[in-house]
Design a protein around this nucleic acid. Sequence first.
DNA 1: AGCACGCCGACT
DNA 2: GTCGGCGTGCTC
Length: 740
Amino acid sequence: MSGAAREPREAVFGPGERVAVLVPAPLDGPLDYRVPEGMVLAPGAIVEVGLGRRGVIGAVWGPGTAAMADDRVKPVRRVLEVPPLGAPLRRFVARAAEYTLTPPGQMLQLALRVPDLANPPQGRIVYRLAPAGLPPGLRVTEARQRALDTLAGAPEGLTAAAIAETAGASPAVLRAMVAAGALSAAREHRETPYPALFGQAAGQHLSGPQEAAASTLRAAVASGGFATLLIRGVTGSGKTEVYLEAVAEAIAQGRQALVLVPEVALTPAFLARVEARFGARPAAWHHGVGQAERRRLWMATAAGEVPLVVGARSALFLPFRRLGLIVVDEEHDGSYKQEDGVLYHARDMAVLRAAEEGALAVLASATPSLESWANAEAGKYRRIDLPERFGPAAMPEIRLVDLRGDAPPRDAWLSERLALAIDRRIAAGEQALLFLNRRGYAPLTLCRNCGHRFACPDCDVAMVTHRLRGRLVCHQCGRTAPLPRACPACGRDDRLSECGPGVERIAEEAARRFPGARLSVLSSDHVTGPQEMRARLEEIAEGRVDLIVGTQIVAKGHNFPRLTLVGVVDADLGLHGGDLRAAERTFQLISQVAGRAGRAEKPGTALIQTANPDHPVMRAILSGEAEAFWAAEAEARLAAGAPPYGRMAGVILSGPQEGPVWEVARALGRGRGMLERAGIELYGPAPAPLARLRGRFRVRLLAKAPKGAPLQAALKAWRAQVKVPGAVRLTIDIDPQSFL
DNA sequence: AGCACGCCGACT
DNA sequence: GTCGGCGTGCTC
C-alpha cells in the first residue's frame, strides 16, 4: 500500500506553551494563543479561540512566537471533537492563499465550511444488547423477545425507530429493558458510511488508444507521487472512461479520488455513469447538497472513508486523508474560476493540492485552456492525446459557410446552404441543432429617425430585446426596462428598428423557414430549471424534436444522441471586444458545439457560418488541427504582454465617478517603481476605462510576476503608497496561470 | 470579516 | 440634548 508519504511525527503543544492559530479574519498570518491547563494540541487541531470580543473557529498552525507580551495572549477556549487538518491540507491552504493573494485565514475558511462544526449534532440514541448478556430473572414478553432477536442480528446497534419498525417493539419496551440491564443505550453521532466502490473490477471494454491512455494513468497513480497529466480527447473519444480507470487504480491503492466537474455537468446522468463503472454512486459535493449530507461527507473524507467524491470546485477544500488523484474534467471551463469572495481557479488549485498530497492531477478536455497547453509544451505537464472517437460514431465533418458569398436574405440569418442542409436532415428524419450564443430576440434597437440607441443607463452596453419576457434586458447587469413603443428621444413611433438576431429570432426564422418541423428552444430564458431541462433533453433524446435552437447551454455536458447536423449561426460573435481570451474561448465553444454532431450511428456534419473564414480560429476549427492555433495564440498573448505562463494579477479600480478612479489609477501607475524593483511588471492603466458596469467606472491594471517573486507582499506595499478615497474600490483579481 | 470607536444630522 | 449614519482600525 503506497499511501501518501508518511508525515514526520509532529510536535504537540501542552499547557503553558503558545500556539499559532489561523483565524477566519483577513490577517497576514496566524495569531498566538496560550494552551490552557489540561489541553494538548496537535498542529491542525480545530479550536475555538477569542478574537476581539467574539469567539471564532480556527486551526492550530504551528508553534507560537515570543513577540507578544504574555498578558495579551488569550487562551485557547476549547478543541473541537473533529479530526485535525492534515499537514498536506494545511500546506495547500497556505500556498493557495499566497498564490491567490488571499489572506490565509480566509482560505482556511473554505476548508472549515461545514455545518455545525462547532456544535456537533447530539446524535441519536443507539440500543445494543448488554455486553454482559441477559440479566437473570428478566421477564421476556413477546415484544421484548422480538426486540432482543432483532438486536442480536445488529451488533452495531439500532435506533428506537429502527427497532419499532422491524420488531414492532415500542420505545417503552426498550427503556424498560435498559433499566433492567438487558440493553445498553448510548448517544452516538456515527454517520452512515459511504458505499465501497469496486474499482478493481475490470471496466468496460476500452479501445486501443483508450487502453493505452488508461494504462499510462494507472501507472502514474500507482507510482504514488505528484505529477500533472493533460488528457486531450476530442468529444466522444471516451476520456471519461479513461480517467475512471485512474480512479479505479487510486481506489485499488487504498487512496481517495476527487473528480471535479463544471457546475452544470454535475448531473444525475454523470453520477449514473460512474455508478455503472463502480457499482455504487459516488459521494457528490455541490451547492445543492444539504447540511446533513455536507457534514457527513466532510467527516467521512477526514476519516479517509470516502473512496470517490464527484464535486464542484469547492470540493477541493474537503479534508481528504489519503488523496491519490484529482481529475479536473473539462478543465478549460470558465466555471472553475471562483469569482466572488475568495478568488481562485479550481484547475490551478487542483494542481497545487495534488502537489501537496503527493497525488496525480489529471486535466481533461477536448479543447484545453491555453495555459495548460503551454504547460504541456514546456514539459511541466505530461500530455496524452485521444485523437479518435470511440465506437461507431465518426468525427463530424466540419465545413465553413462564408457569409460574404452566401449571404442570408434580409432580416434572416440562415444562409441558403445551411437551410438546405437542415431541410435534408429533417426530411431524412434526423435531428439538427442551430447554435447562437446570444439570448433574447435582438441585441440592439435603434431609432432610424434620430439614431437613438437603447442602452443600459448603468453599463454602456445596448439592451437586448427579449420578446419572451416582454422586456429590454441588459446582459451585463441584468437590469430590465419595458419594450419601447416610441423613441424616447424624438418621439417617433414608426422608426424603431431591431437589429441582429438572438436565439428567439432564430427560432422565429426557423419556424418560418421549416414549417412543420418540431422546434425546441434551449436557453436559460426558455428553460426554467433542472427538472424542465431534464424533460426537454428527454424529449430530444426520444426523437420528438426535429430542430433544436440553443445558446451555449447546448455546448456543455449534455449529450444529443440523435443529432447529425450542427449549424453555427454566427461563429464570429465572440471574436470582437477587448477580451484577451476572445479567440481561445471562441475556439473552445465552437469546437464543443460542433462536436455534438454525429454521436449517433450516422456521421455528423457541422456547418459554421462566418464572415472571417481565414481567421486562425476558423482555420483551426475547420482542420481540427489546433496545434498551430494554440502556438499562434500563445505568441499573440506574449505580444500583448500577457503570456500564458507566469503569474498575473488584475488590479481593478471602480467607483461611481470617472475622475477619482482615474486619479487613483494614475497614482498607482506612477508608483510602479516599487513593483519593478521586485521584478514585477505593471501594464496599464489602459487608455480607456473598461465598460461601465452597474453604474461604476472601472479601470484595470495588470501585474505580471516572474516565478518566485513576492507578488503578494509587493502588491500590498505598492497599494499602500497611494491613498484610495472611500468612493473608489480597489480589488485584486487573480488571472491565474498554472505555474507548476 | 466582525465589531469596536468616532465624529456629524433628524428625533423623543 | 440623544439615536444612528457608516468611515477608519484592530483583532493574539
